[in-house]
Each structure stands twice: as structure tokens, then as C-alpha cells.
Amino acid sequence: MFSGCHQIICLPVYLTEWNSTVSHKDLMSDTCFKSAYIIKNFTENYDRLDAFGYWLLTDLLLLPQQLFHGRLGLFTYNNIKKPSYHAFSFLNKLGNERIADGDGYFITRSRTGYQILLHNYNHYDEVYAKGVSISISYHERYSHFPELTADEVPYLRSISVPKLSRSRIHASGALPIQAILEPFEIRLIEIIERFGE
């Protein structure tokens, strides 16, 4: 006898050929904006998708003379890791169990401890969103971010690899963590539990 119940079929959902732009000449593809963009979108859509397919791996396509020329890859044509690469490197270190998330943070747990992924995403202005990029140039890539001050630009230019620091902390119960991030900064804090040391 038919009971009226229907079996629900859940198919996996994959987002493929995903990126912030379709242009292979978008100069912001080589900036710290891209790493914060990737972290923000991945963590905010964590439960909605089964997999992300990033477009694309390297910049090996019609090579221009400049080293950082706005292609969509995670590496330059001569294997220099771009900010987008470091975003995926941080995401790869997350644990399998999500503990908490919110505006700018995503916390997971693994067998060895906890992982806290932070980002300070800043959205570009309306002019750039409409496809007008006349004020952006090879040397001035952050001109479409109104909250970025002139003295922060040299700081952003000087960072090309993640800073690594380690410390040993003895704690019982709560472990307070405070972090202040620069615009477009991403940060991974890994807490590894050691017992009896």
C-alpha cells in the first residue's frame, strides 16, 4: 500500500571554475584582496556546497612581460606563490569538525587541536564593481578600496609570504585569543594540545 512518503534524493553540489573575475588581466588577482576574498567565500558557504573548483592553478597562458599581470592562477608562471595560494594552504589546514564561525572567523577542531582561520575582507567600490578600472594600474592596485589609507599601501606591498610564529602557552579552561588584522589580511592560528609537558 502506498504511504504517501517520498524518498528525498540529495545530490552533491559542486561550484566549478570559480573565481572573483573572468578576466585574465584583472590586476587585483595578484593582491592580498584575493586571499581574503577566497577565505570569506569559502567559510561563508561551508554548508552550502560539497566542493569548490577554483579557476585556475597557474598563470601559464599568453605570458606578458610583467611578473604579476592579473592572471587567475595560484602561482605565477615561474612558480611564485600568490596570495590566493596561501588562502588555500590555510583552508587545507582546517580540521574536520566545525566549532564556530562568524564575521571574519572560522574555528575547527582536529585530532591534534584547534584551528582558527581569520580574515579581514574589504569590498571594492561601486566603480570597480561596474567594470570600470581606469584608476587601477600595475603599481596602484588598491585604488578601488576607499577605506585603505596611503600609509597602509607600503605595508601591503611588503608582504609576500605568511609570517610564522610559535609560542607555548600553559592554560587550563578557557584560552583567550585576541587578534587585530590589517585590511585584506588572513591569519591561521593553530592550537596544538600537549598533555603532561
Rank of each mutant, 00 (worst) to 15 (best):
M1N: 06
G4V: 06
G4Y: 07
L11N: 12
L15F: 06
E17K: 10
W18Q: 07
N19E: 05
S20I: 03
S23R: 10
H24C: 01
K25M: 10
K25F: 13
L27Q: 11
M28D: 01
S29E: 10
D30S: 12
A36R: 00
A36S: 15
N41G: 05
E44H: 12
N45I: 04
Y46Q: 08
R48G: 13
D50E: 14
G53V: 07
W55P: 13
T58G: 02
L63G: 04
Q65E: 13
Q65L: 09
Q66S: 14
R71M: 02
G73D: 01
T76E: 10
Y77W: 07
K81H: 08
K81L: 05
H86D: 05
A87L: 03
F88K: 03
L91A: 03
K93C: 10
E97T: 14
I99D: 05
D103I: 02
G104Y: 10
Y105E: 02
S110V: 03
I116Y: 07
I116Q: 12
H123Q: 14
Y124D: 08
Y124E: 12
A129G: 02
V132C: 01
I136H: 00
S137P: 04
Y138D: 12
H139D: 14
E140T: 07
R141K: 15
T149F: 01
D151H: 05
Y155A: 05
Y155S: 06
S158N: 06
P162Y: 05
S165D: 08
S167H: 12
H170Q: 06
A171H: 14
S172K: 10
Q178W: 01
A179G: 01
A179Y: 01
E182F: 11
E182I: 00
F184Y: 04
R187F: 00
L188E: 01
I192K: 14
E193R: 14
